[in-house]
């Protein structure tokens, strides 16, 4: 590969917002260099107002940079060819409340040039994928937040894009929905799609992202693969099934001491479930007939 084409790439991307009344300029994004390879799941992390949404909007061509460049599959974001290959789920999406679920997907499908039987088939497929069967005939104004998020995902995928931008996809969604979205992202990854998503819920990012970039005050402060970033090189965790009796614990400590691991560096503990895991396990059990 002589010149790899990145799914998304930014070079020195900078966005400033002038505050007209205060004679001050807010730097929303400062000289961002980012490369996302095709097939990657890339997480943008950071507190509110750190530049995640600005980055996505710049990559989508919704706003224009003051400096630098954004590229989608090597094309400018204004290029219709580039837009054909991307899907976007905005933060807290609102759609036309007067349209039903089906009509919403039809509308966005037609905007992407889909028509007729092909569009109908695609809509059926997506409705199944995001489990919105009960929302097909209902107007969107009666949707719950989770349903809106799911119809949002469906419209983002209507034209089967290669690159998906998901802005806070799990904000305001219950853990179930959130887990579904996580599964969906993993499924997309398996299909070879690229996903760029932003979140401030770190646990979720951890579960799906290949690589992350952490933002603060408009700057990218850290970037790398999760394996690299999260592996504690100074320790190793060993897990065994069942409860550890005192006798076996002493035996183990002795064995470890023979290998030179002694003192405060050796720790024994019971692994804990995360609350999410507990919640999901309980609710799923209830749902079983």
């Amino acid at each position: 590969m002589d010149s790899p084409v990145f799914a998304a790439e930014t070079l020195g991307l900078t966005k400033r917002y002038p505050l007209a009344w205060k004679r001050r300029v807010v730097v929303a994004l400062n000289k961002l260099d980012l490369q996302v390879r095709p097939g990657e799941v890339f997480g943008l992390l950071g507190p509110n107002g750190s530049g995640k949404s600005t980055t996505i909007k710049l990559l989508l061509g919704l706003i224009r940079p003051n400096e630098g460049e954004a590229r989608i599959f090597g094309l400018g974001p204004d290029d219709l060819e580039a837009r054909r290959r991307i899907g976007f789920l905005p933060e807290n999406p609102y759609f036309y409340g007067f349209l039903t679920g089906d009509e919403t997907l039809q509308f966005f499908g037609k905007l992407c040039g889909l028509r007729g039987a092909k569009l109908t088939a695609r809509i059926n497929e997506l409705i199944d994928l995001v489990s919105l069967q009960n929302g097909r005939e209902r107007p969107l104004r009666s949707y719950s937040k989770g349903m809106l998020q799911r119809i949002g995902l469906a419209q983002a995928m209507i034209h089967d894009p290669d690159l998906l931008f998901l802005d806070e996809p799990t904000a305001g969604v219950d853990p179930q929905g959130s887990a579904q979205i996580r599964d969906l992202i993993l499924r997309l990854k398996k299909m070879g799609k690229t996903v760029i998503f932003s979140s401030h819920l770190l646990e979720q990012v951890q579960e799906v992202a290949d690589r992350v970039a952490i933002f603060s005050l408009g700057r990218k402060v850290l970037e790398g693969s999760l394996d690299d970033l999260l592996t504690e090189k100074e320790a190793t965790l060993v897990s065994v099934p069942g409860e550890l009796t005192d006798a076996r614990r002493d035996e183990l400590e002795r064995l470890l001491a023979q290998s030179g691991f002694t003192g405060a560096n050796v720790q024994f503990s019971r692994p804990r479930l995360s609350l999410e895991q507990l919640y999901l396990r309980t609710v799923e059990a209830e749902r079983q007939p």
Binding site: K57, L60, G61, L62, L80, E81, R83, R84, I86, G87, F88, P90, E91, N92, P93, Y94, F95, Y96, F108, L111, C112, G113, G152, Q155, H159, F165
Partner: peptide, 14 residues
């Protein structure tokens, strides 16, 4: 206000 414009303009629409 409803941010519907973002979703539309992110599609291949000038």
């Amino acid at each position: 206000h409803n941010r519907t414009i973002y979703t539309i303009l992110a599609k291949p629409v000038r």
